[in-house]
Design a protein around this nucleic acid. Sequence first.
RNA 1: GUGAGCGUAGCUCAGUUGGUCAGAGCAUCAGGUUGUGGCCCUGAGGGCCGUGGGUUCAAAUCCCAUCGCUCACCCCA
Length: 418
Amino acid sequence: MFKSVRGTKDIFPPEVIRWQNLEETIRKVMKNYNYGEIRTPIFEETSLFARGIGDETDIVEKEMYTFADKSQNSLTLKPEMTAAVVRAYVQHNFGESRPVNKFYYVSPMFRQERPQAGRLRQFHQVGAEIFGTNSYLADCELIILAEDLLSKLGVRNLNLYLNSVGCPKCRPVYIERLKKYFLKIESSLSEDSRNRLKKNPLRILDSKDEKDIHLKEDAPSILDNLCDECGEHFSKVKKFLVGNKISFKINPNLVRGLDYYTKTAFEFTSTDLGAQDAICGGGRYDLLVSQLGGKETPGVGWACGIERILLASQKYEERINESLDCYFCLLGDSPKSTVYNLISELRKENISCDCDMLDRSLKAQMREANRLNAKFVIIIGQEEFEKNVAVCKNLATGEQQIVVTNEVKNYLKKNLIL
RNA sequence: GUGAGCGUAGCUCAGUUGGUCAGAGCAUCAGGUUGUGGCCCUGAGGGCCGUGGGUUCAAAUCCCAUCGCUCACCCCA
């Protein structure tokens, strides 16, 4: 038997209703904040991600779905969206037609990791990006947008963590200081962290290993090592958020796993998730556009994991009760094509209808109507057909009356609250 | 990539020390009502007990392998 491949999921009713509602909410909220939707292809040239995300990141090193097409071009299923959006931004010269551009997206992403709670190989993200402004206002609007969206999507118990990862002026200096600090105590570090020390010392700060947790307490903090520009930007962000009643915690150990971040980095977590508790992550990336061949253009953005949103909001949701306006019970040899004309007519009026296709007993058809949570049942048997009438039964009240076929539409319109 | 736990009906799960162990509830279908749902009652269908091998007179049960799922590590949304 064929099965969906590891780490992928089928989505169908009733679960798919949650997705539809979520997408609808996203569109509404994004409209309020004036972000335009962008849809990019599912795959890109491999080198876009290698250069954008960083050659030595885990995503690029071991998690990408990369394949060669028939022309031997190396292509990759997108593992994240920012590089793709930047590619589109540069390709279409969006910066030329207006100085600031705000985009959002909802899209599947692909990373070949071992699946676990809140982690899939094909997963979905909603994200937002702002291009063309250095202003702290952009960072702040995005954080406020994320908070607004997540709470409208029913996610609770959120924590916002905030940090600044500096810029090419101050970060290299800080990394050197950090390296020096950890080199002195290298032998006490966990094995993972000794490797991190060589590749990316910042990530030691993020370690969950018992051995590292004490050691990193006394490590130099990036926040004490920011250059004037980064420091000022960070304090403006904090001040703005306080002024807008957004609560957050400073976490100097928050390091993002993608190389392109500069200055502000942030993450929302929810305690309603498992070990993978990050529901939204983002930050500023002032160098990415130029790195990918565009004019030097500052950018900020975030991405939220849709599966994680659905996971975290699940237990607070009411049960979804789908309903149908009317179910047709067809009996005996009543010409179905004639009855079906009526069904078509009702559907054109946005009255949702369905009918039996198995020639089952009336009892079975009624049971089906009840199961579908139908508001009305229309019974047309031989007798009704000959008299040109239909029995209309209100399933909630149990009342039923005989209506002339031509009047069924009006009868329903009158009695249904559409 | 590493580690741990788990695979029995569409779903959620029982199944003792290997010996009427092929089960329950829900769901489905049918009947009770020859044309009226929900509640109730009666009955039915549905399983190579993940797969392959081994031990044994006998395996859902024990052993080995394999595949899959789940959770966690790594990392990330």
